[in-house]
Nucleic acid binder design. Structure first.
Length: 112
DNA sequence: CCATTGACGAAGA
DNA sequence: TTCTTCGCCAATG
């Protein structure tokens, strides 16, 4: 199906990123660094973040936070402040007093 | 081809 | 504990 991105060469490596994010269950979150490690270093955390800003609509981008559990999208002018946090809260994700996600509780450790 | 930027991460001061 | 610096990969001008 139409997965044409124009770049042609070996598709976008981000597809692997999207696949991982799509596997994150509701009420859990993951981080850019974790995704990068899942890709065996094929993409750095920075590249993962880059991929996320061009991710399709079927990707639960709100379940991806930074290593500190902070919602990086809050600093995006194109994103609504507090939107990601609201979505995560709606899914049952716990937040700490400082406003960051409780990774100890909600960080998705993968299928295994 | 070179310089800059970006939804990051870890280490050092 | 907070702020700064470097490294990382990909995209854009």
């Amino acid at each position: 199906m139409g997965r044409s991105l124009g770049s042609g060469s070996s598709r976008s490596a981000w597809e692997a990123v999207y696949d991982i994010v799509r596997e994150v269950p509701r009420g859990c979150v993951t981080t850019y660094g974790v995704i990068s490690k899942r890709l065996e270093g094929r993409l750095s955390a920075r590249a993962v973040g880059w991929a996320m800003h061009v991710c399709p609509a079927d990707v639960p981008w709100h379940r991806v936070v930074n290593a500190s559990g902070g919602c990086s999208t809050d600093r995006l002018p194109s994103a609504r402040p507090g939107l990601q946090k609201a979505l995560l809260k709606s899914e049952g994700v716990k937040f700490r007093k400082n406003g960051t996600v409780d990774l100890e509780q909600c960080l998705w450790k993968g299928p295994g």
